[in-house]
Nucleic acid binder design. Structure first.
Lengths: 225, 225
DNA sequence: GTCTATAAACAGATAGAC
DNA sequence: GTCTATCTGTTTATAGAC
């Protein structure tokens, strides 16, 4: 795009570009290797080799294994996998079709990149064991959740539901998906694409019954005894 | 020499009992250590020390770290933590109270033994990475799910719902809980006790709306379109 | 049955060659 | 900027003492 100064790529890449590319390759290799072997189980040599380098290149770009892992955790959550929101963004004729197609798409995404679930699990375990890194991981989860929350907010007509409902529902939907994706890896037969859609249909149907109130009614009437 | 045959516990424990106790202590120590450090991150020396022994005792009772881990995975899932079903078994005046109390109890259980979620994550990761161990882990999950499925089946009046519904709902509820417990460790503020209850209320309300059919009606009528 | 001592392999990280 | 060689600590697992 932009000419760095005057002769951006006379032959191939500038030194800075080459280094940036190495760094990127190392990050991608690290993602695969950490997913396959875990944080403690993956060796720096293994990661470097997966990227097509040796340890020297790794230590030239990162302080060590831990920093590499943390960079991965804090890095772009959404430019590697289609986010939940993109999946949700499709348009479907009826609500039933919408949930069904959504469930199918979630499965497709989860089945396509088999590494993300184990990698997320590694992130989670690391955050649980290193409280100082928890904020970093929370931020990554927030990146994933935000578009989902927005989309749910659009789906629920404003005024008929409490303002904090989309956020709460986003948490539930996110937790449900993560849980089902994980269980599907163990028990594929018990976690079909159809079940994803059913669960969402149950959830949003119950949501409307339980939480909606007549339009224009400002204060929600809690009719429980 | 020994009066074991006739005087089983003249002083304290028989040799077999002592060994069994050592084995049990090692398993418990392994559970804590694997939860805290992970499978690859925990060393056998650390596990043995946590149990009050040295490596010799460990290798005298287990073939190695991997066998110890697998024994833990295949071992009793329910005699250490109160299962979901026990939580569900309580009685509550109204449905709303039931969901609220259930959500609170799930949080209490999850917060009380902070080790089970990381340990389950370790099991899951191991199973994903070692397909030959997946069946073992699936069996453990089955042990946890069975009572939940039974209880849900009791809650849904027979005849009004498809026969396979309790199993499907159990999967969804189980996934939902696992997902929320995990997210709560990262974002406690966003996953309150109340939200557990709300999610369940939404789910079961929607379930009744979507899946129930008039008593006596054999074929379910799909009224969407 | 458990502990101590040790063997052999491997890890993360660094220094200097190119 | 990356690679090769190496240093240092730690790991699993075993052998023999008690």
């Amino acid at each position: 795009m932009s000419a760095e100064a005057e002769e951006p790529r006379r032959h191939r890449l500038t030194r800075a570009e080459a280094k940036a590319r190495t760094r990127e390759l190392l990050l991608e290799a690290a993602a695969r290797t950490f997913a396959r072997k875990g944080f403690a189980g993956a060796s720096v040599e293994e990661i470097a080799a997966e990227a097509g380098f040796t340890v020297g290149a790794l230590y030239s770009n990162f302080a060590g294994k831990e920093e590499l892992f943390l960079q991965l955790m804090s890095g772009r959550a959404r430019d590697r996998v289609s986010s939940t929101a993109e999946v949700l963004a499709g348009e479907y004729p009826t609500d039933r079709d919408r949930w069904t197609a959504l469930g199918q798409q979630m499965i497709d995404v989860a089945d396509k990149d088999m590494d993300i679930a184990p990698l997320q699990a590694e992130f989670w375990l690391y955050a649980v064991r290193h409280p100082e890194a928890m904020e970093t991981f929370r931020a990554q989860l927030g990146q994933r959740r935000a578009p989902l929350e927005r989309l749910i907010g659009e789906g629920l007509e404003r005024g008929r539901y409490p303002d904090d409902l989309p956020g709460r529902v986003a948490t539930v939907v996110s937790a449900l998906f993560q849980g089902m994706v994980r269980q599907r890896r163990i028990d594929p037969d018990n976690v079909s694409a159809e079940l994803y859609g059913d669960a969402l249909r149950w959830l949003f149907t119950g949501l409307e019954v339980c939480e909606s109130r007549p339009a224009g009614d400002e204060a929600a009437e809690a009719g429980d005894g």
